[in-house]
């Protein structure tokens, strides 16, 4: 369906036609037209403008979800910091045992930075996967751009990621890692990761409506993804025969660039930056268009 919303100033009076228009504008500034979509997609301009107009809903939903996740716990929102710390501790012990205590320089800072970045993406995808199928009543009873549902999950993931930056900074200084202006390259890389996570999240959220098994497969897929991404190992340690993993895995270039900027304070390789941007744009376009083209069916499928 297409929706257009019109906001106009009342016209001059006298002319009957103008009076009718004036009535419409004065009393009903909203005007919606619902028609079958031409080629599966609604007009993208009005859709995106409506999405932006309703952004407060996504923010409020994200805030409510975060509160609900920690409601009734002793530590409450402190879990936002405790969770990633405990996670990093567990993986550090695991890696240390596997490596028999042989740690490359900056191993802990690398592990911490990579695992936080990985969970930024994987949490967004994991939480989004049920955002549409779990929003049944809202979808059946209120007309709004459905993309706000997975976007709120991405927001939750970003909010959970923010406190980890402070932990990263403390560990970075405590372990004597190098500093410099090149560390600022981490910001565009983080944007790439958020854009990729958004595209992948909306894609998975829509796919889950059609394939309810996806949610069962997802934890295993995410676990394998963690192992084939440069999180528990460093890009420089990859044997020559497995270098391709860094290129075909969308998180490969992004996490490599992230670690070069943050952990080594060097300018990330142009290939990593460009490849990461490419993956992010492709995910956003494919995920976004797939979601928008299918969302009118959600009300009959959830």
């Amino acid at each position: 369906m297409s929706t257009e919303t019109v906001h106009k100033a009342p016209p001059p009076q006298e002319d009957p036609a103008a009076l009718a228009d004036g009535w419409a504008d004065a009393y009903t500034p909203e005007h919606h037209v619902y028609e079958p979509h031409k080629v599966g997609l609604p007009p993208l301009g009005p859709y995106l403008s409506e999405l932006w107009r309703r952004r407060e809903f996504a923010v409020e939903l994200a805030r409510t979800k975060l509160q609900a996740q920690h409601f009734g716990t002793v530590f409450g929102m402190t879990w936002l910091v405790l969770n990633p710390l405990l996670l990093a501790g567990v993986y550090f012990i695991l890696i240390d045992i596997l490596r028999s205590g042989d740690r490359p320089p900056g191993a802990f800072a690398h592990l911490l930075g990579s695992i936080f970045a990985y969970y930024l993406v994987s949490d967004a995808i994991r939480m989004s996967s049920r955002s549409v199928t779990g929003g049944g009543k809202l979808i059946l009873n209120t007309a709004f751009p459905r993309m706000l549902l997975p976007l709120s999950s991405v927001l939750v993931s970003i909010i959970r990621f923010l406190p980890t930056i402070a932990i990263l900074a403390i560990v970075h200084i405590a372990t004597g890692r190098p500093n410099g202006l090149n560390m600022l390259w981490a910001f565009p890389v983080a944007l790439e990761m958020i854009a990729f996570a958004t595209g992948a999240s909306v894609l998975v959220a829509a796919a889950q409506v059609y394939f309810r098994d996806l949610n069962n497969f997802l934890p295993y897929m995410l676990r394998v993804w963690l192992y084939v991404s440069p999180v528990l190992w460093q890009a420089s340690e990859v044997p020559h025969g497995y270098k391709w993993l860094l290129y075909v895995n969308p998180l490969g270039p992004m996490l490599t660039a992230w670690n070069e900027a943050l952990n080594q304070a060097i300018r990330p390789g142009g290939t990593w930056l460009l490849l990461g941007a490419g993956y992010a744009i492709v995910a956003l376009v494919i995920g976004g268009l797939f979601f928008i083209s299918r969302e009118r069916e959600f009300a009959v499928r959830v």
């Binding site: 369906m1 919606h32 028609e35 059946l140 209120t142 007309a143």
Partner: peptide, 22 residues
């Protein structure tokens, strides 16, 4: 639900002037 913009019409057209509450 079609008047509310929740379900799309398969054919035809629905025009709504005003804020809808459901």
């Amino acid at each position: 639900r079609a008047m509310a913009g929740i379900l799309p019409p398969t054919s035809g057209k629905i025009e709504v002037h005003g804020r809808v509450s459901t």
